[in-house]
Design a protein around this nucleic acid. Structure first.
Length: 350
DNA sequence: AACTCGGGGGG
DNA sequence: CCCCCAGAGTT
């Protein structure tokens, strides 16, 4: 074991955080818990995940229970957490583990990575944390810690290969799961993107960037593109205490989630004119524009939408559409963008 | 290698 | 406003 790994593990033993998915000191980690938490933690902060993890575990205590659930129920519980492909793959993965692996998760990085939703990071993390394999675990925290430790001047994402090799060079064969979690805890609390707390760092003596005094330069990243703005009109159709919702297609943005019918979300400088939105309205009822504007930002674009409302004569059936009781709108599991759009109707605008 | 895919919190 | 976050899958 390298000196760096030993110092880090000693620090971890003194500063270990208790997290809902983390086994009690000395106990074995439950692969189902580790897997569920790691999927939720992809691009998502610990604070955000905690509540969702508890809810999922209470509703589906085992991988068998999760596999047996309807996809709609899983998406409903996932609503608000984002990156909904994770929820679809989570469900698929559970079903695969039950049907093809007798309900037991594969115990190797290679076997895990063959499952839906488990990639380089998650496969290595589960193998190390739940099964003690000395896999090389690299997430955003580790990229930052290692790029500083070795002062990697190459920019991401090209630097990923070098960073992984450096990480492998300090990953111990003993306690690899604790080592991985220690690296991530260090990145989250000490080796932070801005104003890193180097005085508290257990491995600062071996840190090349700390030696040079330019820690915040790392990791070097490629410049990012500016986000365009898309604009659309959304449709709120009401009948007899119900509102019309759309079940979105499985592929693409917000796949499988409920939402409102709308004009296409297109990059444009102005909102669709009446002439334009007439072609996209779900019914020929009398549609009236509402005050207010809903704004939401996705990973690669901004969205602005206004709302049109109408009362339907009858509860018609819609392709990919369903009527949902207004009183239970909170329970359907709307993605955040549609909650904002609904608020234009349900809460008075100025 | 570049792009798609959410949402929230911190500076 | 910008940044980042226990990234994966597709093209």
């Amino acid at each position: 074991m390298t000196k760096t790994a030993r110092q880090l593990l000693e620090w971890y033993d003194r500063n270990r955080r208790q997290l809902p998915w983390r086994a009690a000191d000395g106990a074995d980690a439950d692969p189902y818990h580790v897997w569920l938490s790691e999927i939720m933690l992809q691009q998502t902060t610990v604070a955000t995940v905690k509540g969702y993890f508890e809810k999922f575990l209470a509703r589906w205590p085992s991988v068998e229970a999760l596999a047996a659930a309807p996809q709609e129920d899983v998406l409903q519980e996932w609503a608000g957490l984002g990156y909904y492909a994770r929820a679809r793959n989570l469900h698929k993965c559970a079903q695969t583990v039950v049907s093809e692996h007798d309900g037991e998760f594969p115990s190797t990085e290679e076997g895990l990575k063959a499952l839906p939703g488990i990639g380089d990071y998650t496969g290595a993390a589960i193998a190390a944390i739940a099964f003690g394999e000395a896999a090389t675990v690299v997430d955003g925290n580790v990229e930052r810690v290692v790029s500083r430790l070795f002062r990697v001047t190459e920019a991401l994402p090209a630097a990923k290969k070098a960073i992984k090799e450096h990480t492998a060079s300090i990953t111990p064969s003993e306690r690899p799961g604790d080592f991985a979690q220690a690296m991530m805890d260090l990145g989250a609390g000490v080796c932070t993107p801005k104003s890193p707390k180097c005085l508290l760092c257990p491995i600062r003596t071996g840190c090349a960037a700390h030696e040079a005094g330019d820690m915040e330069r790392f990791p070097v990243k490629a410049p990012k593109k500016t986000k365009p703005t898309r604009r659309a009109m959304s449709f709120w159709l009401e009948h007899d205490g119900h509102v019309l919702l759309e079940r979105r297609p499985q592929k693409g943005l917000l796949g499988g989630m409920p939402g409102f019918f709308s004009t296409p979300w297109e990059e444009r400088a102005t909102f669709p004119t009446k002439e334009e939105w007439l072609d996209h309205r779900p019914t020929e009822d009398y549609w009236k524009p509402l005050e207010g504007l809903a704004k939401h930002t996705f990973t690669h674009f901004h969205l602005e939408t206004k709302l049109l409302t109408a009362k339907a004569d009858a509860k018609l059936n819609f392709e990919n559409g369903f009527w949902h009781p207004l009183a239970q709108l909170e329970d359907v599991g709307l993605p955040t963008v549609f909650k904002k759009i609904a608020a234009l109707k349900t809460t008075p605008q100025k």
